[in-house]
Design a protein around this nucleic acid. Structure first.
Lengths: 338, 338
DNA sequence: CTTGCTGGAGTTACCGATATCATAAACCGG
DNA sequence: CCGGTTTATGATATCGGTAACTCCAGCAAG
């Protein structure tokens, strides 16, 4: 009855036959309705509905060498922090009829390179990378492909192309100044692995810069590098308090570390900041509900996503050219824990 | 010097020219190296490196009508709960050389339909949908496309194709039995909006079923429907305690609601479960660090992602056919809050 | 009435791969 | 040393669209 094998998607020429026009006219009617007569447009629309036509974007992109897909590489998807950036990107892209492909690098440059290669294979129109350090081969591929790129992780001093972020250095420094202003002098610093990314390194530079500015020594017994996770925060708390550095405050510059530590203080019945003050990086909602609520930084996670997508689209659609650095703002949320 | 305009990506024929073979041979050397002679293979590999060739998958997929992209639609990306499922999917896909496209439906069927349409336009090889209710048009499109689909949200009774999930009904019921066994009799139930999805409805059915099984009445004063978020948990706590239902325990069957409530109890210095017992759904890490640690359900989030990707790939690669329901297990984590 | 222009629709080539078939060399037992 | 098979490679058509050009009718101006 059908004339077509089942499972075969309708093609443009099927629509054309039904609407009694050429395939080219169907293409025009769909992409640029102004350029066909109203009657033809109506016939085409009807035919599209009738055969259940969904345009093949593989063919479209191949032919026009224009893609509507953006590739995103994040260190890990399983992390609410990237989630909110992803949501921001996704919101903007969808509004502009673009699609989002996501890959995670597992915090490794090799995996990032593989993801980038795969995305370039899909001929994405642009890339958003969270990390700011890349393999030479990855950089070379991106250069050859000549597509716009946004980096997100920190305001790196060696951008590939465009950067949309906040300054991890300045944010850490601002928090340190805040603590110093409150009178804390022996401030511990807990960071995620420094080798893994520039963000953590920038934060530690900010920590060190604030100490130097205040004329205080950098005491290695006050600095700790730990893996991510609640449990690591608890462990860091113990190790710093027992480590001989005798901290009066601890600045947790990594995701969920502060939460683990703060909850542990509650569990032990330690007064915060009486026993030790606690400051965090990000995660503002939850930290505000802890007892006591924890001082932290509000970071523009969602905004980073939105703006990244926007500047990328600006370039793709020819509204802008050249490198660009967008410095988004952070904010210190002062609460009872410090 | 170059012969090619800058920005033009190398094509297969460029590789072919350099390697002094035909394009077809390049194609074979890359896809099925066994089928070309060792010397030719070496020449091709060298040429690929030399010109920086990245195969165009748009062209490849169009030609072979075989795609390596999977489309995923989640209600919201900005949610750690989906994040871990996404990570599971992504891990499996990457290992098999497939790509992942993600869209969020914002908890609306219309938006889901739009996302599905876009994905079908990209000729994805398969779909993973978190929601289990869809517009008729979305269902029709998927049927026409004839691609495999996995639904994730709950063990729906009307699956489109394959389902990988756990039973929200049974999970809620199991938690209720747990609470009833502990002697609680006036158990409050806080849920996310029921209209939005089948998951929440299944959970409430489980709540009701457990009550009936125990011969207890369903008291509307003990049931509350609230939006997601920490603050909503706090509000729910207040409203249930003041609502005349006089609960001795509250079962928070929605993301982060229980966390908000538990932290609020800490803040007010209420003993838990002395004042009221608290049970949660999911989020097991964080809940275990609260004071007191909160009883909850361990849900197979990551596993859902992994298995979904696996069954999808099985179908795509012809290793399996037909509908399939995978019932993954949940587990009650009994802690001090109940 | 001719010329030139305009707007709507059609024709053809092509995007960059792969499927399919064709071809030539290598191989092999009798 | 030959017919027949295997093996490596190439030629060509095609996937489903779009770019760029062509064509033709209708109309205004000269």
């Amino acid at each position: 009855m059908d004339g077509e094998p089942p499972g075969a998607a309708a093609r443009m020429r099927d629509v054309a036959r039904v609407a009694q026009v050429s395939a080219m006219t169907v293409s025009r009617a769909l992409k640029d309705p102004e350029r066909v007569s109203p009657e033809v447009r109506a016939r085409v629309e009807e035919a599209v509905r009738q055969v259940g036509y969904v345009p093949n974007r593989l063919a479209g992109s191949l032919s026009s060498s224009r893609s509507n897909v953006i590739g995103l590489v994040v260190p890990s998807i399983d992390n609410s922090l990237f989630a909110s950036t992803i949501q921001g990107i996704s919101d903007v892209l969808r509004r502009h009829g673009h699609e989002l492909m996501i890959a995670s690098s597992g915090y490794g440059e090799e995996a990032e390179e593989a993801a980038i290669r795969a995305f370039l294979g899909q001929r994405v129109a642009g890339l958003i990378l969270h990390d700011t350090t890349h393999t030479p081969e990855a950089v070379a591929m991106i250069r050859r492909a000549g597509i716009p790129v946004v980096e997100n992780g920190t305001l790196t001093r060696h951008p590939l192309d465009m950067v949309v972020s906040y300054s991890n250095h300045d944010a850490a420094m601002a928090m340190m100044r805040h603590l110093l202003r409150l009178g804390y002098r022996r401030i511990g610093f807990v960071t995620l692995p420094l080798a893994a990314n520039e963000r953590s390194r920038d934060r530690r530079r900010g920590y060190a810069a604030a100490l130097e500015e205040a004329g205080l020594p950098y005491d290695p017994r006050l600095v700790l590098e730990v893996p991510p996770g609640l449990a690591a925060g608890v462990e860091a708390l113990d190790r710093l308090l027992d480590g001989g550095g005798d901290p009066d405050a601890i600045f947790f510059a990594g995701d969920v570390l502060a939460i683990g530590a703060a909850l542990e203080c509650t569990r032990r019945g330690w007064p915060v900041p009486g026993r030790v003050a606690i400051a965090a990086f990000d995660n503002i909602d939850l930290l505000g509900h802890l007892v006591p609520p924890v001082t932290t930084l509000r970071l523009p996670r969602h905004e980073i996503g939105r703006r990244s997508a926007e500047v990328l689209l600006d370039r793709i659609q020819g509204r802008a050219t050249g490198p660009l650095t967008v410095d988004l703002r952070f904010e210190i949320i002062h609460r009872a824990s410090t």
